[in-house]
Nucleic acid binder design. Structure first.
Length: 445
RNA sequence: GGCCCUAUCGUCUAACGGUUAGGACAUUGCCUUCUCAAGGCAGUAAUCCGGGUUCGAUUCCCGGUAGGGUCACCA
């Protein structure tokens, strides 16, 4: 039997990280079984759906690299849904019911499923056997009219007509499952799919994360815009609720397909830990070549810097060390941040040039004068951090590293926190470095 | 509240019924060029509680407790 899975979002918002993980699990399971995965947009509630969300969702999957074998909108199947509703009615499994209108928009006639009031056991791959008594569900509504099916009916009919073999979805659907099984059995065309309800992704305080309560961090688009690598996001997500059974953590999509095991998915919810995501992202960023890295960061580099590609090139090494996502680039170059010295030395006081452990203006001034002499011996086109370091290092060791290096670094950067002085000098270049040292010396007079 | 699910370091998790309860993130300390970052090393830190079953429970069973999900003419 060929495996067919599906991811079935409703277009009422952008793609949620929990949705992305559900889709990923469906994808991995389908791929490792040589099966197919369908993207079904569940847009039966015309009033709440928005076209922009459909493109938002499909764009997010394009970015993630999760491809579908088939994509369709559920509303395209309304005629088929109608056929099944009619069939259920004519076979006495459903009926047209007269209703009292409780709220605006209510119909005075809806279609209800005739509940056989029996026990239904969901045989779940992850949760095991879960027994429900369906009596309390009553004769639930399956359509507002022949042409307006609602969730449970459309969902089941589409699963049946698409030949879905495995329903892998979030745990919030577990309690919907008995209803759907009842409908599935009433239609009685194909045997039940296997169900797998995956645990929820939780917030810090252990509740289901939602856009409403937790904001933009729940949407995949946010991570795309913040400059995260898709492989890092996917890697982070796949390990929320599943692991390969050993200490391996960095997994490519191919490795995930090979190693994923739906039966080993965790039963309990997992807290979404942004710091760990950042760590994954850093791991993946560090694997990038300089060329790829530059490609990824182009949209985050401030204009004044992207206009000076040589300067940017000299700073690249340091930038790569400092950031956890490409979006961080904008932050480290903000005024007052650690890399802003490249653009703008900024104001500082003479006292800040003095090393805390030995604050003495004359000593600092003399060291800076000596550093200047040493730097002057280096040819302009040979002014690399290694060369600068080898020129200054012996002097610093001989005269107290802190005494020499603190004023040196501070003169170059004007900041308490910054890259080391050798790298800073290299980034700034010989001329600018000397200018800044002169300025520092004059401040100390 | 009814129904349902869940329970190992702060977080993600590993552990045929027998382990000094392992790893990762975070955190702390140290080292690595003065600060920062990165890196290296080391450390702190967990089986929710109570009963069973068993020679022996993190592991199996029951009960509490706590958290979560769900109860639409939404999906």
């Amino acid at each position: 039997m060929k495996v067919i899975t599906r991811f079935a979002p409703s277009p009422t918002g952008f793609l949620h990280v929990g949705g992305a993980r559900s889709a990923l699990f469906n994808y991995l399971f389908a791929k490792q079984n040589g099966g197919q995965i369908i993207l079904r947009i569940e847009d039966t509630d015309i009033e709440r759906n928005k076209e922009e969300y459909i493109t938002g969702i499909t764009d997010a999957f394009k970015w993630l690299g999760i491809g579908f074998d088939l994509t369709y909108k559920q509303s395209d199947n309304f005629p088929i849904h109608r056929k099944y509703i009619e069939k259920l009615i004519s076979s006495g499994k459903a009926y047209i019911s007269k209703e009292e209108i409780k709220k605006e928009g209510d119909r005075n006639e809806v279609i209800r499923f005739k509940n056989p009031n029996k026990d239904v056991t969901v045989d779940d791959i992850i949760k095991g056997q879960v027994k429900f008594n369906t009596t309390e569900l009553g004769d639930f509504v399956i359509a507002k009219s022949l042409d307006e099916p609602i969730f449970h009916l459309s969902n089941v009919v589409d699963d049946i007509t698409s030949g879905i073999t495995h329903v892998i979805r979030g745990e919030e659907h577990l309690s919907n499952t008995p209803r759907q099984i009842l409908i599935w059995e009433a239609i009685n065309e194909v045997s039940l799919p296997r169900y797998a309800h995956i645990p929820l992704i939780l917030s810090e305080n252990r509740e289901k994360i939602s856009k409403r309560k937790h904001g933009e961090i729940v949407s995949v688009e946010y991570y795309k815009e913040q400059g995260y690598l898709r492989d890092a996001l996917l890697n982070f997500l796949v390990l929320l609720g599943w692991n390969p059974g050993n200490d391996e953590e960095i997994l490519s999509i191919d490795q995930m397909i090979e190693k994923f095991n739906i039966e080993k998915v965790q039963k309990a919810g997992a807290v979404f830990n942004r710091e760990k995501l950042d760590w994954f992202n850093k791991q993946y960023m560090s694997k990038l070549s300089n060329e790829d890295f530059i490609d990824h960061c182009s949209k985050f580099v401030p204009k004044w810097l992207s206009n000076k590609p040589e300067l940017f090139g000299r700073a690249l090494h340091i930038i790569r060390e400092k950031i956890h996502s490409f979006g961080d680039i904008a932050k480290i170059f903000e005024k007052g941040s650690e890399m802003n010295f490249i653009q703008d030395l900024g104001e500082y006081t003479a006292d800040s040039l003095l090393w805390k452990k030995n604050p003495n203006k004359e000593i600092a001034s003399n060291h800076l004068k000596e550093i200047k002499k040493l730097l002057d011996t280096i040819a302009k086109d040979n002014f690399t951090s290694e060369v600068v370091k080898s020129a200054i290092w012996p002097y610093a060791e001989g005269n107290g590293k802190g005494d020499v290096l603190w004023p040196f670094r501070f003169a170059l950067t004007g900041q308490e926190k910054s890259p080391d002085p050798f790298s800073s000098a290299y980034i700034l270049g010989k001329d600018e470095s000397l200018v800044r040292i002169d300025l520092a010396i004059s401040k100390l007079m």
